[in-house]
Write a protein that binds this DNA or RNA. Structure first.
Length: 558
RNA sequence: UGGGGUGUCGCCAAGUUGGUAAGGCACAAGGUUUUGAUCCUUGCAUGCGCAGGUUCGAGUCCUGCCACCCCAGCCA
């Protein structure tokens, strides 16, 4: 695992910052910001942006502000503001200042009047539909609005009356006066203020006109003294507009916008709008469903902040389209939990084993290390009893020598315990194996039997000294590699096996398990309690990720 | 048919002023192992979208193609 204390891996943005710092630009300072719109939960694509903005600023001795881009009260709420703050803090980042674009509404308004006075903005009376018609197309230039040359005084008066609430939604807008024939559509007199008679989660009902992104973002950056403003590639052709506004207003601070490509993760969606759809349609159990790539979902699934930070470093930053394999994310959490998760045993598909030569009603306590390589993690005790559970897949009536588990008539070791031999199969009415009678060799605790080789080691749980538990396994929510770029209805691409629920048993030591702990269920994978569903008397475990399984690969080949 | 971007191993991604292709994941083969886990060792682009050119020498410079992504919200 990459060391968190190391510098962020080099990339084209860090090179730019290095040059800027070296040349003394901005007085050698690096100030970044993370600007989420509080209209949904953060996902792992945001984590990439967060790690980048916070990480690079830290590496260059700078700071990072958290700024909510709250210019559209229709879609935003404090619930999302709070969820976002929780997620960023959980990821392990500390912002310098908490700001809101709405903090600047007064200044933004004044600046807009300046623009009008300088004949760089005008109030347009065209309807939304007409504005669209006048805009032209990608290949045809647009034409000027008939209101474009409205007198400054008239625009000013209209704008003030807009603010005063004299007009209804959609009646008027304020537009920048740039160039309707620009090949860049964003420069064709973009709208910067619209009327919306709705309360805002931060400013209440103080305003009924709200500034738009292109106008707000660059000015907020400038007002905060941001030096490097990172965003995704889709804003690349907005950069001329970003610069235009700052230049026309002669802002003393002119941040540099730098664009990088957003993360695409295979077999999942990364669009907030589509994630919101899955949540609203109850296709998933909320924004924190363990199958979602949201920060909250990953957290509930059992991913650690460290593993997500590691992931963001591993995938790097560039401007090229990417489609990162799930294997990278899985490798990150395995690396973390391999070192930090205590080992325990749990059974998902119980098969009862009855040890004939072990006395009924008694238990032998066995010491089991909590980690194979870390003595400091200590030991816990396991109750070895006459009846135990093993996993159904660890028993076969017959098998060749490659099968390193329990086979009829042959021996296998119970992890941390004794070697047992399968002697008799009991079947239920359907003919399915319900129990296997075995004998154990009392001389094999901590040492191998003489003259014989046991096939292997399997995990187990006492059938009488254990805890019942629900165990949930996950697969990708979608069954195609890039659901985001598919034309098909996303609901038709859902993987019907994305969640599998088992009723099983886990060792008794897990009574003390807490929500923030992760465990390795030996030979099965890494698990944690589900923060929403698990109760003290009703344990529910989520599998974060399986262990690497080369046996499954070998079997699949045959 | 306009504008803005991107094309280096299956997936990411490094590649100082041109000097002879990092690393990670994945994969493969061995070794250790009371987790078929971990760990260790080894292998894995005569090749950098394609075609020309400049040069002693080009992923890096020039020219011309090709492919893919983004943009026509009073969303961000």
């Amino acid at each position: 695992m990459n060391n968190d204390l190391e510098k962020y891996p080099v990339n084209f943005i860090s090179h730019m910052m290095e040059q800027d710092v070296a040349s003394g630009k901005n007085g050698g300072a690096v100030v970044t910001r993370f600007p989420p719109e509080p209209n949904g939960f953060l996902h792992i694509g945001h984590a990439k942006a967060i790690c980048l903005s916070f990480g690079l600023a830290k590496d260059f001795g700078g700071k990072t502000n958290l700024r909510f881009d709250d210019t559209n009260p229709l879609k935003e709420s404090v619930e999302f503001v709070n969820a976002i703050k929780t997620d960023i803090a959980w990821l392990g980042f500390e912002w310098d200042e908490e700001r809101y674009a709405s903090d600047y509404f007064d200044q933004l308004y004044d600046l807009a009047e300046t623009l009008i006075k300088n004949e760089k903005a005008y109030v347009d009376s065209l309807s939304g539909e007409d504005i669209r018609k006048y805009r032209g197309t990608l290949t045809e230039v647009g034409k000027n609005s008939p209101y474009r040359d409205r007198a400054v005084e008239e625009s000013l008066s209209l704008f003030r009356r807009m603010r005063a609430g004299e007009f209804s939604d959609g009646e008027l807008v304020l537009r920048l006066k740039i160039d309707m024939s620009s090949p860049n559509i964003n420069m064709r007199d973009p709208t910067i203020y619209r009327i919306r008679h709705v309360a805002h989660h931060q400013t209440g009902d103080k305003w009924c006109i709200y500034p738009m992104y292109d106008y707000t973002h660059c000015l907020s950056d400038s007002l905060e003294g941001i030096t490097h403003s990172l965003c995704d590639l889709s804003f690349e052709d907005h950069r001329p507009l970003y610069d235009w506004v700052l230049d026309e207003l002669k802002m003393p601070s002119h941040p540099q916008q730098i664009e990088f490509s957003r993360l695409n993760l295979q077999y999942t969606l990364m669009s907030k709008r589509k994630l919101k759809e899955l949540v609203d349609l109850s296709v998933v159990d909320g924004w924190d469903d363990p199958r979602l790539p949201t920060i909250a979902g990953l957290r509930r699934r059992g991913y650690t902040p460290r593993s997500i930070r590691d992931f963001c470093r591993r995938i790097g930053v560039s401007k090229s389209d990417n489609n990162v394999e799930l294997a990278v994310l899985e490798s990150c959490i395995r690396d973390d939990l391999e070192i930090n998760a205590p080992r325990v045993m749990g059974i998902m598909n119980p098969l009862k084993i009855i040890i004939k030569n072990f006395p009924e009603g008694s238990a032998e306590m066995l010491d089991a290390p909590n980690h194979p390589k870390n003595e400091k993690m200590g030991y816990r005790q396991l109750a070895f009893t006459r009846e135990v559970y093993i996993d159904r897949y660890d028993f076969r009536e017959e098998a060749n020598r490659k099968y390193k588990r329990l086979v009829m008539g042959d021996e296998v070791r119970l992890r941390y315990g004794y070697v047992i031999r399968a002697e008799e199969i009991i079947r239920d009415q359907k003919g399915e194996i319900s129990e296997v009678y075995c004998t154990y060799d009392p001389s094999t605790l901590g040492k191998n039997p003489e003259g014989r080789k046991v096939r292997g080691v399997i995990h187990w749980v006492s059938a009488t000294e254990c805890l019942q538990a629900q165990i949930r396994l996950f697969e990708p929510l979608f069954n195609i590699e890039a659901p985001d770029s598919s034309e098909q209805d996303k609901l038709e691409l859902l993987n019907s096996d994305s969640i599998k629920i088992f009723e099983g048993f886990v060792e008794k030591s897990l009574v003390t398990a807490t929500m923030d702990q992760s465990f390795q269920f030996e030979r099965e994978g890494y698990f944690c309690l589900d923060s929403k569903l698990s109760k003290p008397k009703r344990l529910v475990f989520n599998r974060v990720v399986s262990l690497r399984d080369t046996w499954a690969k070998i079997e699949q080949k045959q």
